Computed example of a mutant assay.
Amino acid sequence: MNDSRTVVVGYDGSVEAAQAVRWAARQASARHCQLLLVHCSLWPLLTDKLGPVPGVADSGLERSAQITLEEGLSHARHGEPELDIETKLVYGWPAEHLVKISAGKDLLVVGSRGIGGFMGLLIGSVSLEMAATAACPVAVIRSDDHPKGPVVVAVNGTGSSAALEDACTMASTSQSSLTIIHVRHTPAGYRQLRDPVDAEAAAYEVVNTAIEAARALAPAIAVEGRVLTDTSIPRAILNASKGAGITVVGTKGQGLIRGTIGSTAHAVLHHAHGPVLISRRSTTRGGPAETDNSAQR
């Protein structure tokens, strides 16, 4: 099988990771891809006593890691018994391994392990780091019961080509409709320097151009466009994506040290209640990420 035709998913034994594995398995099946299931064990960083306890079956930290991987495989097989699945057990920090393993692949899928109610932050540190550093698109899965709604993609004035391409792929594989949104940012108290009529016309031109591009990329799906006006771009995207099957956004970030993932993508990841896909690319297999430069600020 072509190595690039692979969906990678991380599994750590949590409920959120199980949801991500099941979602990833469905996505890999729809894309006719292989699923690569990865479990990263931290135990060797903490102790060198990984072996079994004498006389105790299935004991020891190394065996525990293998059992966790087998559990993840069971989640993947449950809904997609015929799927081509490879498993990989590695030792060390998950973010370091996942970013290398997923480079150049079709998609990296991770679960969200955020802190929930406090300030509504719904994404964990590993998910955020993958969204900022991975060299392929990253899907962060919130719930196992996400709506069968449309794929929603936010585009900026450039047309957000990578995000639009990923959104078309998602809509095609899930047989969903596609909603393209563009937000006219009007900060509170900000005096419009441009004629409002011209600004509105420019916004509709962005959306109409994106609709034409989407219909060329995925002629079998239904596409609609919307121009939104708000003092907060992330708020407009979050409101528009309620009930969506997945929300797709680009990123202007260049990794954690160079400025995270861009303010809009960061806000959407932290506050969305459904799956979110961050569009990222690699210029070469295993090379550094090439950002979409499409997140609206």
Results as ranks from 00 to 15, higher is better:
Glu70Pro: 00
Ser14Pro: 05
Ser294Asp: 05
His146Asn: 11
Gln27Val: 11
Val38Asp: 00
Ala295Met: 04
Tyr11Leu: 07
Leu35Gln: 05
Glu224Cys: 12
Ile237Asp: 02
Ala103Met: 03
His270Met: 10
Ile257Phe: 13
Val153Tyr: 06
Leu277Pro: 02
Lys100Ser: 12
Lys242Tyr: 01
Pro196Thr: 00
Ala30Ile: 01
Ala30Cys: 04
Ala18Glu: 13
Leu45His: 08
Thr251Tyr: 00
Arg191Pro: 00
Glu200Trp: 07
Glu82Phe: 10
Lys105Trp: 06
Gly159Pro: 05
Ile257Ala: 15
Trp23His: 11
Ala17Arg: 04
Gly13Lys: 09
Gly245Leu: 10
Ala171Gln: 06
Glu212Tyr: 06
Thr133Gln: 15
Arg22Lys: 15
Gly60Gln: 03
Glu70His: 09
Thr291Arg: 15
Arg281Gly: 01
Leu217Gly: 09
Ala135Gln: 10
Pro94Met: 11
Ile67Leu: 15
Gly286Glu: 09
Arg258Trp: 01
Lys100Thr: 12
Ser232Lys: 05
Arg194Gln: 15
Thr283His: 13
Val110Ala: 13
Leu69Tyr: 09
Gln296Trp: 06
His182Gln: 02
Arg297Ala: 13
Gly116Val: 06
Asp84Val: 12
Pro54Ala: 14
Ala171Thr: 05
Leu228Glu: 04
Leu50Gln: 09
Trp93Phe: 11
Ala25Met: 04
Leu164Ile: 07
Ile85Met: 09
